[in-house]
């Protein structure tokens, strides 16, 4: 991971640990948010809310879910931690553009 994405990963992992019963140590860049970490839908909403606030963005969860359900993107593209961090960096960059 690039340096900034690594920082984003750390921040998101901290948020997940604070908003769920997942321990911080168990979260790795390769972790799938739901399949590996077992985040349920309510915890996921709290996590997205915390990410929105922390990064000043609006994580487009509905759009991502639609793309995954339509087979346009693999779930890993959005929901594996290192990729989630990269998507968040893209959203932050787009906001500042």
């Amino acid at each position: 991971m690039a340096a900034d994405t690594s920082a984003t990963f750390d921040k998101v992992a901290d948020i997940i640990a604070e908003n769920s019963e997942v321990s911080r140590e168990s979260i790795t860049p390769e972790s799938h948010v739901t399949e590996d970490l077992g985040i349920d839908s309510l915890d996921f909403l709290d996590i997205v809310f915390a990410i929105d606030k922390a990064f000043g963005i609006k994580v487009p969860v509905e759009k991502w879910t639609q793309e995954v359900n339509a087979g346009e993107k693999p779930a890993e593209h959005y929901f594996v931690m290192k990729n989630l961090a990269a998507r968040i960096d893209e959203l932050v960059a787009a906001k500042g553009a």
Binding site: D52, K53, K58, E62
Partner: peptide
Amino acid sequence: THDGSGYTV
């Protein structure tokens, strides 16, 4: 206070 994607606070 927050308009999220698919949720509202």
